[in-house]
C-alpha cells in the first residue's frame, strides 16, 4: 500500500521506499530522509524573489541577501517536480524534516483496514470539497 506523506511523496509500505507521487520514481529508503534521493539545486534567492527596487542603488531591495540566505530546491529525479524547498544560510546542511517510523505506519494502516490513497483527502470545509472536486476532475490535483 502507498501512503501519501506530502504533496509529492508517498511511502510504499511493500517496498519501504519513498516514492514520487507524480511519476512513481523511487526516491529512497523510507527509514531515512527522502532528501537524499532528490536532485538538489542551491538557488540564489535573488532569482526567485527578484529585486523590486534598484539593487545597484540600495542594500535592501525585496530580495533576500544571498550571503545570508540560500534556497535549496529538491527535485524528483524522475519527473523534475520540485518536491520541497529549504531556506537556509549558505552551507547549512539540509533540514531532515521527516523521519518516519515505517513499522508503526504499517501497523497504523493495517489496524484501520483502509487504503491510504483511496481515503486520502485535503480536509474539511465546503471550500475544500468544491475546489478539490473541480481540480481532480481536470487532473490538476491528485
Amino acid at each position: 500500500m502507498r501512503v501519501p506523506m506530502t504533496e509529492y511523496l508517498v511511502i510504499d509500505l511493500d517496498t519501504e521506499r519513498w516514492t514520487c507521487r507524480v511519476c512513481s520514481q523511487d526516491i529512497g529508503d523510507a527509514h531515512d530522509s527522502y532528501k537524499k534521493g532528490t536532485l538538489v539545486y542551491d538557488r540564489d534567492p535573488r532569482e526567485i524573489h527578484q529585486p523590486i527596487i534598484d539593487p545597484n542603488r540600495y542594500e535592501y531591495t525585496f530580495s533576500p541577501d544571498p550571503t545570508y540566505c540560500r534556497i535549496l530546491e529538491y527535485y524528483c529525479p524522475g519527473c523534475g517536480t520540485q518536491i520541497e524547498t529549504d531556506y537556509l544560510p549558505p552551507g547549512h546542511p539540509p533540514t531532515i524534516d521527516m523521519l518516519i517510523d515505517v513499522a508503526a505506519l504499517r501497523a497504523q494502516w493495517e489496524k484501520s483496514g483502509l487504503d491510504a490513497e483511496e481515503v486520502f483527502n485535503y480536509g474539511p470545509g465546503d471550500d475544500a470539497q468544491k475546489y478539490t472536486a473541480h481540480h481532480k476532475a481536470t487532473g490538476h490535483i491528485r
Partner: peptide, 12 residues
C-alpha cells in the same frame, strides 16, 4: 512542498 516563501522586506 515545493512552494517558495516570502521575499525580504526593506524599510525605504
Amino acid at each position: 512542498y515545493g512552494g517558495y516563501g516570502c521575499g525580504a522586506y526593506p524599510l525605504a
